[in-house]
Amino acid sequence: MNMTSHTPTAYNFGFLDEYAKKEVRRAILKAVSIPGYQVPYASREMPMGRGFGTGGLQLTLSLIGPGEVLKVIDQGSDDSVNAVNLRQFIEMTCPGVSTTTRTAEATLIQSRHRIPERPLTGDQIIVLQVPYPDALVVVEPSEDKRKIMHGEADYSRLLVKLYEDIVQFDEITISHRYPTRINGHYVIDPSPIPRWDVPKLHHSRSLALFGAGREKKIYAVPPHTDAEPLVFTDVPFRVEDFRDGEGRRRACERCGCADSFLDEFVDGSGEKVYQCSDSDWCDEHLAEANQGVTA
């Protein structure tokens, strides 16, 4: 058996064939035109697992061109295994693209679970990886029915669910993937970003694109667009609380920042420690602090 005759020697720029990119691009344009609506697309298999960011990756590969400056993060970190893996794959299949860890330098940011702390600019696009694209799935398992509910902007069952939470716990217990209404119509699952990041979608200067590979959906929050977490007037939306027992805001152990989303972990001596989840934000603050010392 001779395989040499058809052994592939190189992959297309961006791995996907050009037809696959065209389909994703058409879906992206419709997603932007109908903010928050989940546009179905075919979703090709990528060489990493469904659930590892294949939806985000297909968006990135359909957007990216030579000269792009790309940042890939996972949990806010550029050095997380999954971020490294995705970045290496993009570097391998997209010659001419440069990568950065600096949020400010990036033109395209692919992220899982976080939106950078530094406000994004109008020259940047953020691509978020989405495991569950539909906020209604908790109240309606059938997609056929959910599509009609979305079309009619009928979110009454979702609101009832939130209300039941309040009755039972005196709090809305949704921690991340907080249902967010876009441009007064569609409610999206904003991907598993913490509630901390949800307000960043509201009238952002940058375009946010969401890609769900396994569920085969693309949706968008355009710049300068309303993105409002679902709430009741008497129970405000609250982001994660980083105050200690005495009510003082905890600060990052490393850079001292007291207004960023913090990762909590236990250090070698068994002490609970807090650090910025956004590694670039932390590095920047640390550099500023060090400059302050040496100056």
């Binding site: 298999e45 697992g49 469904r50 659930g51 590892f52 294949t54 996972d74 949990q75 806010g76 997380s80 295994v81 999954n82 899982r112 679970h113 976080r114 495991p131 716990f169 005196d170 709090e171 217990t173 949704i174 921690s175 991340h176 993937r177 598993p192 970003i193 913490p194 509630r195 901390w196 396994r214 994660e240 609380d241 989303f261 913090l262 990762d263 909590e264 972990f265 989840s277």
Partner: peptide, 29 residues
């Protein structure tokens, strides 16, 4: 198989940001 195994596998990836958010809700309630 590719969809379902991928998603089962993805639970091995770090999820500490969402878990932080989960803990926040549990502690508050």
């Amino acid at each position: 198989g590719v969809d379902s195994m991928g998603f089962a596998t993805h639970y091995k990836m770090p999820h500490y940001v969402t878990f932080q958010s989960d803990m926040d809700r549990l502690r508050t309630t």
